[in-house]
Every structure is written in C-alpha cells, then in structure tokens.
Design a protein around this nucleic acid. Structure first.
Lengths: 216, 216
DNA sequence: TTACTGTTGTGCCAAAAGTCACAAATAATT
DNA sequence: AATTATTTGTGACTTTTGGCACAACAGTAA
C-alpha cells in the first residue's frame, strides 16, 4: 500500500517483465498473471533461508537481493539479483525438489514475482520464450560463477577487493561498511580495514565513514 | 580401430547414451545418428583449449576428461566429465557464441560424442528428452560448482585436500603425483607434499611413489 | 651399472590472511 | 551535552600458503 504510491503498480511491473523477456505467447502471459504472486519486501527481509525447501521461483521485479552462503562466522557472496533477474538456485530447485544451500536477503526494497516451481518446470518445454529465459539465466549464472571461482582461487584478496569496489562504483561512492565488504568477500573485517588503508595510501581511493570513493 | 577391438563400437555407445537418457523420440534418435560425430582420444589429448571458439557440444561416452582453468603457473579443477556427461561449458556456448574459458584434457582414453551447437540449441525446445538432459546438466553442474566455491572460500587447503582424496578413493589407492593434486586444487607442489606428510603422520594415509592410500 | 628423468622431502624465508585486544573516531539516542 | 552504540584503526601475534633451492629417492632406458 505504502510502496504503491511511490512505485509502479505490481501489475505494471509484471507487464514490464513480460515485455523485457519478449514473452509473446498470450497463453503464457495469462498463466503468469494467474499463477504467480507478487510480494513486497523491505531492506533486510530474509527471502530464502539456508536449508529451507524451495517452493517458488523468485524473480526480482524491482530492488536488489543479495544471495550468499554462510559458514560459522563467515559469509560469501554468490550473486546479486537485480530487476528482471531470476534466482538461479530457486530455478534449479524447480527441476528437483531440494533445500536451499544459500540465504537471500533484501538489499534494497524489493518487489518480487513468485512462481510455483511446477509451472516453471512445465513452461520450460511449453513456451519458447520461457525456455529462452531459463536457459539464459543458467548460462549467465554459470559463466559468472566460474569466473568468481577462478578469481577466488588465483587472485589475492587485495585485488578481489579492489575489483569488487570498481564493479560497485558506477561513478558514485560505495556505501558499505568494512564488515559488509568482509561478508561479501568471505573474509573478516580487520583484514578488509587494513587492505582498504593500504589502497588509500596508494592513492587508489578515499575512505570515509561507511563510504568509499574510488579515485581514477 | 585399435580401440574398437577392446571396447564396444561407437555406434553401440551412442545407442547406450540414447537409452540412458531415455531418448524415446525416434526423430531425435535419427538426428543424433546423422548430425553428431564420434571421436576417439588418448590420455593427455587436449580437447578444448582456453580462448578457442566452441563449435560443438562434447559429451563423454567412455573415459574421463578433466576440465580446468589455468592462470600463469597454476591450475584449478572445474569438473571431471564421466560417461554420459556433457561439458556444461560447451553446452553454455551452444546458446551464445563464445570462447572457452577453460581447458579440457583427456584423463582416461575417451570416446566423445560431438554435436554441433546449432542442433543442441534447436533440440532444446523441440525434444522433451533433450530439454531434460540440458536442464539436468545445468542444474547438477551449477549445484556442484556452488559447493566447490564455498569450500574454496571457507575450508583450509588441508581439508580440501583430504576431502578430495576421500572422494577419489573408491576403496582403491589414488594414483596421482603431488604435482597433479596441486594442479587440481589450485596450489603448488611443495604445499601438497607438506600437507600430505602431515596427514600421513596423523595416521590418515600412507604415501608411496605416485600412490596415496587412505586409511580408515 | 650408469646415467637420466621425474618425484618427493625439506630447510629457510616471505607474503598473505586471520585472530585477539583495545583505542579512537563517528554517529545515534536520550 | 552526555551516553551509548557502531564503525574504523592498529599493534602484536599466529597460521596458512607460497617460493626457492637443493638433496634424496625411484623408475626407466641405455
């Protein structure tokens, strides 16, 4: 209710999604309207919990979601979901009942499209545009994960940190605490603080409270 | 020719593949016969080179292939391909022209089914059994890679090494050099030698030349 | 047997990453 | 303004991993 005043209506967003994905099949458009539901979430809401059964495919219509794995004290980022992106892991669960191996938490207030897994599975062979969407989702996620994997294996943390900052800084400053960065990169706060200091004294960036400004 | 005397014929293997995958569509069976080719490779043959365009989907019918990324001196294993398994990265390339980010090398003498990418793409929506196959390949590879990723992030090398050895040791000894293990785990030979020594003195295994025996 | 090649062991040191403890700076709340 | 909570900085230390050099060992081929 509150959100609706500021953003497009959920219905308009679903239509936008349908257009962006070039879903031309009228029948699928109808099925989407009927069978999916739309939910609204605030920052820090937990959308998927580790070890929980996955019953719907989640697609972000608006906002941003962080998907990560946790391990005792540490965490590591798997991916961010941006608008028109589907959670690959819940997609994967559509084709075989399984528990989630990750957590997903809202990073920016979100509107999410939820599609029960059985429809996702059925549509995959029924509608060409849907097939393209799932295939594309898998392909991009897989390629992305492979490159993350080899970065993790080969790049020193300092480089991974700097690359990460660059990728986040679209001409603006990055508003994250050192603790948050540590959790995305799979390490601890102190390590990040020190590396940031080092990067600052190398003239690569400026540090302020909860803000990092990349210099070029 | 040489291989044919010892193994099933390639034709029989293709049929086996068709059965295993429950490819019931006769039309697809025909297309597979017509449009795919079968190649034979010996240990250490390079099947896919980094940075090379991918033109065919490769599926192992017999033998084993190691797929890895390289970075200057180091390497890291991405996955092994066993019989009836498709190379997920070449599958991914079927849906978008791209260069390979990995190398693939024959680990055990191999018979490989090669399917030009355009057919793979077309069949994905044309034949249900093929759709299931590609979906399953993606799903399993993606889940596997995620778990490798978080192991790499959270587990110390000693544990990763031990787990790796356990996974390889099906009641037999592991016939690998320390150098080979280093390349699969993304590290250097000396580090592996030392960790193995430590595991040996903890009574977890016995070391011999080119052989590691797990004790339980 | 000898020579060669590949494999393993290890000392020594350096760099990278992690841990603990606590101080200083900044922001938020009362 | 005073108090509290959060964030950042950093010293001191440990553990993990990596790099270099070279010796010891095993297997193979001449």
């Amino acid at each position: 209710m509150y959100l609706y005043e500021h953003f497009e209506s959920p219905k308009a967003m679903l239509n936008n999604f349908i257009n962006q994905l070039r879903i031309t099949e009228l029948e699928l458009q109808d099925e989407l309207q009927e069978k999916s539901s739309i939910t609204i979430h605030k920052k820090d809401d937990i959308i998927i919990k580790n070890n929980q059964y996955i019953k719907v495919l989640k697609i972000v219509l608006k906002g941003k979601v962080r998907v990560y794995q946790e391990n005792e004290e540490r965490e590591i980022l798997i991916y961010y979901l941006n608008p028109i992106e589907a959670c690959t892991l819940s997609l994967s669960a559509c084709f075989e009942d399984c528990k989630s191996a990750v957590n997903a938490v809202v990073e920016e207030d979100c509107i999410i499209l939820n599609i029960p897994v059985r429809f996702v599975r059925d549509w995959n062979f029924k509608y060409k545009s849907w097939n393209s969407f799932t295939t594309k989702t898998y392909r991009e996620s897989y390629n992305h994960l492979i490159s993350q994997y080899s970065n993790l294996a080969f790049q020193p943390l300092k480089d991974r940190l700097f690359d990460y900052l660059i990728s986040k800084a679209n001409d603006a400053v990055i508003k994250k605490t050192h603790q948050e960065l540590a959790k995305e990169l799979g390490t601890t706060r102190e390590v990040i603080s020190r590396l940031l200091k080092k990067l600052e004294s190398n003239g690569k960036l400026n540090l302020r409270q909860k803000e990092i400004q990349i210099l070029k």
